[in-house]
Amino acid sequence: MKNDDLYSAYQLNKYTPLPLYYQIASIIREQILSGKFAPGDQILTEEKLQKMFGVSRATVRRAISDLVYDGLLERNHSRGTIVTQPKLEENLFTVGSFTSTMLQSGKNLSTRILEFNRIFGDASLNSKFALETGSSFYYFRRLRLIDGSPVCIEDCYAPVKYFENLSSGMFKDTGMEQSTYNLLQKQYGITIKSIRDIMGAVALNAEDARLLSSHNGAPVLLRQRMSYDQVNRPVLYTTGRYIIKLTMNLP
């Protein structure tokens, strides 16, 4: 069915208390949820919607904004406004690793190590781990994939003094053995008992956009996580860019 035809049956009611933008958003929402639009489909341009419904540009924009914030539409630089691809969801109800959460929900998760180095910590990193100047860290960058599609990039830092001889070869690319938490527990007897996450939103740079099969400047979830062991030492710091939603149950 042509895009234009989808709206021909709808007329706005200018006499109800319901705002016009809300009515337009409801119409588009219904089209998406009933499957008339598939993920990735373009909706009509703002100009066309404006003409079709006989409303102002601001009214159409407000309708679109609501649907963008509700996660049903997204702005794409090259393609206009499109129906969002459903995002994977990670539930942080328990302090599971990303690996265990995904595997437990039946996802086909795999990991690719992009980089593994030993570095000297700068003041910021030393301070995060409450370690002295001159401390060394392992730095590793990982790409996580679900069914072969990239879903996040993680930059990880772990103090050398706690994890002697850590190497990239210790990480496997599938199964539970791709989990850093699992590795720390099995190889070093360190169990992660608590985490502190700081959430933000950032625009991807060109390189990360390429790795995540996204576009330069795409907004992604940024999660900065410090993981603490059984004696409350900070032992692993991860900065991740995620193309997923996160849910948390709060006490």
């Binding site: 914030y69 907004p219 939603k245 849910t247 948390m248 149950n249």
Partner: peptide
């Protein structure tokens, strides 16, 4: 209690 879901947009 509360349940939070976080995502991003421009």
């Amino acid at each position: 209690k509360a349940v939070d879901e976080v995502s991003v947009a421009t």
